[in-house]
Design a protein around this nucleic acid. Sequence first.
DNA 1: AACATAGGCAACCGCGCTATG
DNA 2: GCATAGCGCGGTTGCCTATGT
Length: 297
Amino acid sequence: MMGHHSCCNQQKVKRGLWSPEEDEKLIRFITTHGYGCWSEVPEKAGLQRCGKSCRLRWINYLRPDIRRGRFTPEEEKLIISLHGVVGNRWAHIASHLPGRTDNEIKNYWNSWIKKKIRKSTSAPPPSIETSHINYGSNQLELVNQNLGTTRAIPTQETLFSSQAPLFMFDTITPLDGVLQDSPHLNTETSWNTLNQLQVQPFLPSTSFAVETNNYLPPLIDIMENMVPIEVQSGTRLEEEGGEIAMERLRRQQQELNEWVESQQCSNFVMWDNIIEGQIGVEAPSSSTTLSSFPSAL
DNA sequence: AACATAGGCAACCGCGCTATG
DNA sequence: GCATAGCGCGGTTGCCTATGT
């Protein structure tokens, strides 16, 4: 039996809460040596913990860029909105909130949702039937199947002010390197609500948000057919692979634009953001409508 | 004041994926 | 192709504190 978690099978591993001394040891070790292999960290750092525990402690609590304290209303809205789209994919949601961990968001959601459910027992949320969205249950199934999770249809609490459903997805591979030199960064990247809320989207990849009047199986198809763009982070256009990736990106963009046009979307926004703030993308004050959305990169 | 209960949070567990040999 | 190890993720537990009785 493949030694399940042999890292934790050692006899003297300590468990439970971390003491300040242990924290200090871990911080000192990681900040001087970094972490290549977590399983080696405890021994080298002089800790009676398993590597997994060290990793968790570092990721969720000790790392310097962690953001602690209460969630802001903006963060809360973003979480609610994202949860409506991707469901319980906490790590994915966390990737949109710089400095927040999946664990923190999950805990927050679990507390929050309990309250919400309790409160709403007297006034249940509108059912799908009462919303204006028109789609068949088979389509819903299709979407859930394709996207892997069952999710709420986000009608009530999306970041957008309208009642149209919001869909959002990321390209599979980070594009930061390619986009560094891309003219596309000069487009009217738009995310009105985020801008209004002064939330800086902070994603590991290019993302699209589509607000539609219709339901979305065609978009799912596009997503399914998207080819991962594999370019090392930091690759520039003039370097090997840059052109090809850019071409693929253009093609994807075009497909998406075509689809958006065919769907009479009420709104179509797209934003980029770049890891570690290498490039800041300023969102304009108002959302770019389809008609003014630049079709070319 | 003493106890019970609920909520918030940090940490753990087990599974699945990936890399390596 | 198989075995193994490490890591990341989502679900879950359990401790501590605040609040209620």
